[in-house]
């Protein structure tokens, strides 16, 4: 038993090492400052990832602004407000079902809802708010823009965010809620002054992990028409965009070996970003998480 367990564990570790080593070998030579600061190009040697890098930042920021508060709010409602009822378990089942929906399916919903606004208003004749100089520039329907991309990803990560926040809230000892209630707190005062502060480090860890999921998603963005080759960084909510995983897909799918090299280089950048995310999560988990009860 132990032998087969060890063998299995070794396989898992070997796979990770093979993955990292093969990508490092392939990609390191293409990494350079100009790789980070140039736009895409027909020649692999001149291509860079500035546009997808900035695209990822924009899309993820929008996704975080939407998904984190909504996810926490939903978790608070389900854990702190909703009484045990059929409706509650239905919503709960629905959320776990949503977490199993393939991300590409969210892409289809987003295509119809965000990009085309259910066809209620034509994309050729959009409602316009603000001027293109402002970053708040907005048109409805959104079209395949940064805002559509961010909202798409927020659909994908929302169930993850909800479930993580719920687990965090559930880990707050019941005795703290009781203490607050017995002092005459209203439900929201219990949440705001006691439960939420106590759960916050764990919720933030969940939020960071959700964001690292969002930053690696390509399929739903591909469906809504995220572009594979973009030669500018986003300037407002309506800008065209691409993201790192889409750029990697584009380069990896080409037959030429030199494009595989820059794909690997882009992967290294992507993994470094993810690793940074994960380390922040670990730091938060270890430093901020004080014991809740002695």
């Amino acid at each position: 038993m132990l032998a087969s367990c060890l063998a299995a564990t070794t396989i898992a570790v070997l796979v990770l090492s093979a993955l990292l080593i093969s990508i490092a070998i392939e990609g390191t030579s293409a990494l350079s400052w100009s790789f980070l600061t140039s736009f895409a190009s027909r020649k692999a040697s001149q291509a860079g990832i500035l546009a997808p890098l900035m695209g990822s930042v924009w899309v993820c920021a929008i996704c975080a602004i939407v998904a984190i508060p909504v996810g926490i709010a939903t978790a608070i409602y389900l854990e702190e407000y909703a009484r045990r009822s059929r409706l509650k378990s239905l919503i709960q089942l629905n959320i776990s079902n949503l977490s199993g929906v393939p991300s590409i399916v969210y892409g289809i919903l987003a295509l119809v809802a965000f990009v085309r606004f259910f066809g209620i208003r034509s994309n050729d004749d959009p409602l316009t708010f603000g001027s293109p100089e402002s970053f708040m520039y907005l048109q409805i329907p959104f079209g395949p823009s940064v805002i559509a991309g961010g909202l798409t990803l927020s659909l994908v990560v929302l169930p993850i965010m909800i479930i993580a926040s719920q687990e965090a809230l559930r880990s707050v000892p019941q005795s703290l809620r009781q203490a607050a209630l017995a002092l005459g707190s209203t439900q929201w005062q219990v949440v705001w002054h006691v439960t939420l502060p106590a759960a916050l480090p764990t919720i933030m860890t969940g939020a960071i992990l959700s964001m690292s999921r969002a930053i690696g998603e390509a399929a739903p963005l591909l469906v809504i028409g995220g572009f594979l080759l973009v030669f500018q960084t986003p300037t407002n909510l309506m800008s065209d965009f691409t993201v790192l995983p889409l750029q990697i897909y584009n380069w990896a799918g080409r037959p030429q070996a030199e494009f595989h090299k820059i794909a690997a280089a882009a992967i290294i950048v992507q993994l470094v970003v993810l690793l940074a995310f994960n380390s922040i999560a670990i730091v938060i988990r270890q430093k901020l998480q004080r014991p809740l009860q002695s």
Binding site: P173, S175, L176, A179, A182, P197, R290
Partner: peptide, 28 residues
């Protein structure tokens, strides 16, 4: 809520909030 403000309760296990001593007393 009003009732509980007039009726204090002390529990089986000490359950101070993970806050400062001052903030614990000032909470209510």
């Amino acid at each position: 809520v009003d009732l509980r403000r007039r009726v204090g309760m002390v529990f089986q296990k000490p359950n101070p909030f993970p806050k400062s001593i001052f903030d614990n007393v000032a909470f209510g």
